[in-house]
Design a binder for these strands. Sequence first.
DNA 1: CAGTGAGCGAGCTTCCGCTTGACTT
Length: 774
Amino acid sequence: MPKNLVIVESPAKAKTIEGFLGPDYIVKSCFGHIRDLSKSDISIDVNNNYAPKYEISPDKKEIIKELTKLSKSVDTVWLASDEDREGEAISWHLSEALNLDQSKTKRIVFHEITKQAILKAIDKPRQIDYNLVNAQQARRILDRLVGYELSPILWKKIKPSLSAGRVQSVAVRLLVDREREVNGFLSVSGFRVVALLSFTHQGKPYVLKATLPRKLANEQEAQVFLESCLAATFNVGSVEKKPAKRTPSAPFTTSTLQQEASRKLGYSVSQTMVLAQKLYEAGKITYMRTDSVNLSETALNAAREQINNQFGERYHKQRQFTTKSKGAQEAHEAIRPTYMENPTTEGDSQEKRLYELIWKRTLASQMSDAELERTVVKVSISTQKEQLEAQGEVIVFDGFLKVYIESTDDLSEDEEGSGLLPPVEAGLSLNLDDMTITEKFPNSPPRYTEASLVKKLEELGIGRPSTYAPTISTIQKRNYVVKEDREGTPRNYTVLVLKKGEITSEKKVEMTGAEKNKLFPTDIGTVVNDFLMEHFSQIMDFHFTAKVEKEFDEIAEGMQEWTKMINQFYHPFHKDVERTLVESERATGSRLLGIDPKTNKNVYVRIGRYGALAQIGESDDEEKKFSNLRSGQRLESMTLEDALELFKLPRNLGDFEGKDMTVGTGRFGPYIRHNSSFYSLPKIDDPLLVDADRALEIILAKRKADAEKVIMRFTDTEPEIQVLNGRFGPYITQGKENFKIPKDRDPKTLSLADCVAIIADEANKPKKIKRGKK
DNA sequence: CAGTGAGCGAGCTTCCGCTTGACTT
């Protein structure tokens, strides 16, 4: 019987550690938090010093039973949860829930999963740090108070089932603010000058591409500039070379891994975490939920060895990075391969690519700076004071760039300043091949991707490595936010060209504002955000988390009583809650768009019980009219014209077989309705233009298709079974189930007995095997 | 699936941060 029970948070960790400790130790995992406030109500007694009502989480009952039993059979229980606020609380909850005898309970922490580190930890046990535990309780209770008092207000004032919280509501605010910034962005164009200048050097022809550093203000100025260049001569004025260097980024944390996997591999935040979890469980990488950029001694040594072997000593430079992000708790190492000597790994291709990314990033972080040479060439124009400029960059020593180049979210305008310049010297005379002046519009601030939102949240110190992915999915589940593509809109721009002594001007069209896989706030997300901003600006403040984190730190250091801190927060907050419940109007996001010229009534858009709608007439008007907004239409961007357009449908097209034909637009696009049947309108038809003849055509075509749908039926004997013609050819249907007809059978000649036999045959076939794994 | 949009009232929804599976398609 083992004499010692060690409890860690993660089962993968438990397995590794057990190997180090020998037969006297049994190592178990508690799978994270084991107790929490009950979900069913607020579970905090606000009138009794905020006494929390904890209960064992339903999914942890089983493991607690097992741990209790084990703890009774050993001499010593070692609580080895992580060394941060949450980890300390887990140890305390364990000690309470398992009813541990303090004299045989020891608290240990280690930062590295090596035999040495663990033995050292066991050598220096301590007691539970109650200041840290109280800091966690304060965090937990504040979050519960905010979440469980704000959400019900939203149910009453906006819509049931909505939610608000310290983290999610600020995440939505970032998106709403950005959306407004983008929509309000005024893009003032400038005119960009690019010249292609040729020369010969040692008998070989070269072209130098040079640009004017500033943009010209308008077309007229561009025209004047080109005219002045018509008779000009061009000379290289100066060539200046400067050394530069580039330094590798720190190894991955959760958030930087999510960002790079999104940029380089196109993974969603949650996809990255699922893959990383698999790599972790397979023992290939260290823990994937971390905010630390620290590498252990073991890792530093392994990286050095790998770099020296693979690239030579010149490529190695040992670096230890320091964590900058707010609120970092550093319970773990950075995310790195467990074995640096493996540049790649077995497994499915997605896992493999993520592993290789982690390996490269880790290795690069321990490599030398890249040395560059930047060259700036100035080109003089004889008729102008202003000079053109060409920039080049050459890698003198690649260093870490040999394995890893970090990506950025910025869409840099051009590829300026990269690559090798042709051989030029001061005084060299150049020949103008052509000069192009293109009208350019500056980009609006970029919309957020999942990963760039995580980056922003981390910068603000909001959320933790374990919650970034769940937060992103919560705000999408609540329908506050959607991730989607949007088509761009066409925009005109002007291009002026000087070539062979002639100046020409041309109007061109480019697409602008197209987005791929970006986060957009929905109407409901916007209405909830504006409501919270109006009544709870304190919670919505981007620095709210940072402020309370500072107080949690003070509690952790024993400088402040946790109940006092919560009390100071709760009193004013709860007053706001009560006042809002009484005073605030129902929030519908209602906007008055204008007046309907036909009826002279007001036209509104707002959120209704079933989503966004347009309304003509006041709410107490008996003859008011409603229409759903179309998909893609947003409350904020609706105009009077857009709204009036909606009321043009449904239209009555006239009578057929004694019943009205109407045309309308539903959830699945435009349709014709006749005698309570629906007929989808083909894409080529515009519901506003369709006439009675065309509607009739569509109805008859559908009837014909339906008539041909039934190949065989056995009405008398077995009305359940039919042979039908479907989208993919003939098939047999029985009730709600469909069955394939074997290729060698003619569907037209099948008898009922044949059908029954085929159904029995198909039903016996094994179900499709799961895809994914080989 | 092609409507609905108001109100009543029962009963429900909801937070953040630790951890993994157990479930289908």
